[in-house]
Design a protein around this nucleic acid. Structure first.
Lengths: 256, 256
DNA sequence: CGTAAATTTGATGGTTTTCAAGCCATGTGG
DNA sequence: CCACATGGCTTGAAAACCATCAAATTTACG
C-alpha cells in the first residue's frame, strides 16, 4: 500500500464535500473549463456535483464498475491501471489537476481500468448524463475534450515504440514538468513513486533510478528525492523528441 | 527498396469495371459479408464497384490522400504503414483476404497511413458514401465492423507491451496461421518478407530469423522458406498467450 | 545464367534486467 | 529515548537479451 503521508495543503484536509465553485478553483487554468466563457463556466459549475477529498491509496473505481460519472482532478494525483491475467499491475496514466478520469469506458458503460489516488487528492464528480448534456450544449467543451482524448491516445501509443530508457525518462520528465507547471524557479515534485514511474514507462525501477542519477551527473536536471528541476530543457527535449509525448511549448491550440 | 510505390488509385478509378460477385467470391468466408443473409450479400455486392488486380509493390493510397473509398482484400496481402519524422517505415498491419483497408481515417477524411500491396493482390473498392449507407442500413454489418475494428485496436495495443522476441514471433505465427487458414495438413505461406515481419514486431530481421530457426529446432514448427506448419500448437499458444493477439480458437461470435 | 535481393548464420557489443546489498526516513514497541 | 522493522530509493555486479556488423548461402527474376 502506497500511502503518502507528506503534509498536504489545508485546503485538501479541511473539506470533504463542498459546493463546487469553478470560478474560484485554483486548478481552473488546467481544467477543461479553464478560460471558458462566463456562462459556460457557470454551466459546468452547475453540473459538478461533488468535490471530495480522497486519501492516498483509496480507489475511485475498479474494473467492471458501472460508469455513472466522470471525475476531474482538482488537486493531487490519480493513477489508472489495468491488471493482466497474471495479476501484474500496469499503469496506464497519471492524472494531474485538470485531467479527466473515467472517460475510458463511456461507450461500454463499464470501467476498463482501476483508478486509485496516488497522493491525497481532491476530485470533482460529474454525473454521466450531465457530462453528456454539457458536451452537446457546448461545442467548445466538446472540442477541448476531443483534443484531450486524442492527446491521451497519442501519449499511450507513444510508449508503444521501442525507445531507450533515456528517451522514455526524458519524455516523462518533460511531460510531467509541463503538467505540474511549477512556479518559475521552483522545482516540480513528482507525486508518484519510482516503481510506478518505471511500471508506466515499462522499465525496471533500478533503470529509472540510474537514468535519473546520470541525468543529474550530466547536468540535465537536479533532483532532491521526488522533486526535480530541469536545468537544460533543450537537451532534455531533444532526447524526448522521438517519443513524441511532449506537447509543444505553447499551450494547446483550440479550433475556432 | 524494390517496391514500386507509384499510386495506383487513379488506375483503379479509370480501369474497366469488373462486376463484383460476392456470392461466388472465394474469400467470402473471411469477408465482412461472409455468412450474411442473401439480401445483405446482394446489397454489399451492389456497393462494391470494382475488383482490381494490384501488382506487388503498388500503392493503394498514401498519407494525406483524401479518403474516398475503403477496400477489402479479396486475394493477396496489403500492408499499411506509417513513416516517422526520420523517414523510418513502420508497419502497422498486414491485411489478408476479407480484411478491410482504409478505415483508419473515416473520421478525418484523409489517410493517416500508406497502403501497399505486399504480394499481387485483388481488392474490392467500396466508395465511402456507399459504405456509410450500407452500415446504416445493416446493423449486422455494423456489428461485424465494430467487432473487427476493436480486434484491430487490441492487436495494435498488444504489440505495445514489452514482450520477448519469442513471445512476439509465436504470437505472430499463431495469428497468421489463423488468418491464412490453410487447408488441413497444408502449410501456411507467409506473404511478407522477414524484414516486414521484423519491422511489424519491432525486432531486427536477424532476430526473427533466429527465433524461427530455434522454434524449428525445438520442434514447435517446421519451415520451408516462407511456408510453415505449426507442429505443437499448444506450446506455441502458451508462448504467445501473454501478448494476447491470438483470438480464441473458435470463430468470432457476433451479437444477434 | 547472372545479378540483386532475401535469408541465414556467426561474432561481438550495448542496453537493460535481475539479483544483491546498503542507505535513509519513517513508524512501532519496549 | 532507543532498538528495530519497514518500505522506498540507490548503487554495484553479473547475466540475459537483442541489435549491429559481417559474411556465406539461397532464392528470385530479368
Amino acid at each position: 500500500m502506497a500511502f503518502d503521508t507528506r503534509p498536504v495543503s489545508s485546503e485538501i484536509r479541511s473539506c470533504s464535500r463542498v459546493a463546487a465553485n469553478c470560478a474560484a478553483c485554483p486548478s481552473s487554468r488546467h481544467c477543461l473549463v479553464g478560460g471558458a466563457a462566463q456562462n459556460e463556466t457557470a454551466r459546468w459549475n452547475a453540473a459538478v456535483q461533488i468535490q471530495q477529498s480522497i486519501p492516498a491509496g483509496k480507489s475511485l473505481y475498479a474494473v467492471g464498475d458501472e460508469v455513472d460519472a466522470v471525475y476531474t482532478v482538482r488537486a493531487g494525483c490519480v493513477k489508472t491501471y489495468t491488471v493482466d491475467d497474471e495479476g501484474n499491475e500496469r499503469v496506464r496514466a497519471f492524472h494531474l489537476p485538470g485531467d479527466i478520469v473515467g472517460l475510458d469506458a463511456l461507450g461500454s458503460g463499464r470501467h476498463l481500468s482501476h483508478a486509485v489516488a496516488v497522493t491525497p487528492a481532491q476530485i470533482c464528480r460529474v454525473p454521466r448524463e450531465q457530462m453528456r448534456k454539457l458536451l452537446v450544449e457546448s461545442p467548445t467543451l466538446m472540442l477541448r475534450l476531443v483534443d484531450r482524448m486524442s492527446a491521451t491516445l497519442a501519449a499511450a501509443l507513444a510508449l508503444a515504440g521501442d525507445y531507450t530508457a533515456d528517451q522514455r525518462v526524458a519524455a516523462f520528465l518533460v511531460s510531467m514538468h509541463q503538467k505540474l507547471d511549477p512556479l518559475p524557479g521552483a522545482p516540480a515534485r513528482l507525486p508518484m513513486c519510482r516503481r510506478d514511474i518505471a511500471n508506466f514507462l515499462r522499465l525496471a525501477t533500478e533503470t529509472v533510478c540510474r537514468v535519473l542519477t546520470r541525468f543529474e551527473k550530466q547536468g540535465l536536471i537536479s533532483t532532491d528525492d521526488r522533486a526535480f528541476r530541469i536545468l537544460r530543457q533543450d537537451a532534455l527535449r531533444e532526447l524526448a523528441e522521438p517519443v513524441g509525448i511532449t506537447a509543444p511549448a505553447a499551450p494547446v491550440r483550440l479550433a475556432a
